[in-house]
Design a protein around this nucleic acid. Structure first.
Lengths: 139, 139
DNA sequence: CTTGACCTTCAAGTAACTCGAAGGTTTATG
DNA sequence: CATAAACCTTCGAGTTACTTGAAGGTCAAG
C-alpha cells in the first residue's frame, strides 16, 4: 500500500512517516515503479509500534534502537530494560506533574466561575493567575 | 537583583528569561552601570507569572498578550477569557491523554514484572510493546 | 593581580515534526 | 483520449521553546 493508506492505518501523518524514515527510525520501504513508497502490513505494524512508543513520549533515539533490534529479531531485553525503566519513571513524574496542574486548573476555573458569577462583566481571571503566581513562593 | 538570582527565585533558567525578553514576552529590565540586567521583585513576580502559565502549557503567544495587559493594568477579561477557555479545554484533554498513557504504562510494567519474574534473563519487555502495538487496531 | 563566578551578545543547535514549492503519477469522469 | 483531482516525490525552510557555546566584559575574594 502507499504512504497515505499506511499513515491512515497507523494513525500518523505521512510527513511523520517520511521523517521517521529519514531520521533512521524506520527502514526505507520498497518503491513502486513510479517511485512511490510501498508498505507491507508488517511495516504498518512497525509504524504503529513507533507511534505507540512516541505516544508514551519515548524519544525517537530510544525507539530507533528498539526498532533496530526488533527488525533483526534479536533479544532486545537489555536495551529495552535500560530504555524502559527510566522512561517509565519519567512518564510517571510527568503525569504527577500534570495532575497537579489539573488540580490547579480546576481551582482556577472554579474561581473564575465564581467571579464571573458575581461580576458578569467584572474583574477577571487574570488576577487569579496573578494570585496563583505571586502567592506561591513555596511552590 | 541580577538575572541569576531572579532565575533562582522564579525557578527558571537564566537563558529562558533572556529568551522571554528577546521574544517580547517580558519587558526589558533596567541595567546596571556594567550592563547587567537588574530585576525588581515585581519583575520576578512577572517571570513567575510567565513560568506558571507555561507550566500549564499555555503558549508564549498567549502569555505575551496577558503580560502586556497585566503591565498596562488594563482589564484583561476579554483576552483572558478568550485565551483561558480554550487552554483549559486543551489541558483537560491533554491530561486525559496522559492518564490513558499511564494506565497503559502500568499494564506494561506489570507484564514486564511478570515476565521478568518467570524468566529473569528471559524474553523481554519489547514483545509487550509489540503486542500492545500490534493487537490494538481499534485504538 | 589573578582566579573564578557571574554577566553580556550573538549564532547555532535541539526535538519532532510540519509546510510549501515544484513537479511526477494515477484514477475517475466526460 | 484529455484533463482535473487526488495522490505521490524531494528538498529546504519554518515551528516552538528553549539550550548551548563562543568570545568577551565585570566583580569579589585571596
Amino acid at each position: 500500500m502507499r504512504i497515505g493508506e499506511a499513515a491512515a492505518l497507523a494513525d500518523v501523518e505521512t510527513s511523520a512517516i517520511r521523517f521517521y524514515e529519514q531520521s533512521g527510525v524506520l527502514p526505507a520501504p520498497e518503491r513502486t515503479a513510479a517511485g512511490y513508497r510501498d508498505y507491507t502490513d508488517e511495516q504498518v505494524d512497525l509504524i504503529r509500534f513507533v507511534r505507540r512508543n512516541r505516544s508514551l513520549e519515548i524519544p525517537l533515539d530510544d525507539i530507533r534502537q528498539m526498532v533496530e533490534l526488533r527488525i533483526r529479531g534479536e533479544a532486545p531485553c537489555g536495551v529495552v530494560r535500560k530504555v524502559m525503566a527510566p522512561e517509565a519513571a519519567a512518564i510517571d513524574s510527568r503525569i504527577r506533574e500534570l495532575q497537579e496542574l489539573r488540580a490547579e486548573l480546576k481551582r482556577l476555573q472554579t474561581k473564575a466561575a465564581e467571579i464571573t458569577d458575581v461580576w458578569p462583566e467584572g474583574p477577571c481571571v487574570c488576577h487569579l493567575v496573578e494570585a496563583e503566581s505571586g502567592s506561591k513562593q513555596e511552590d
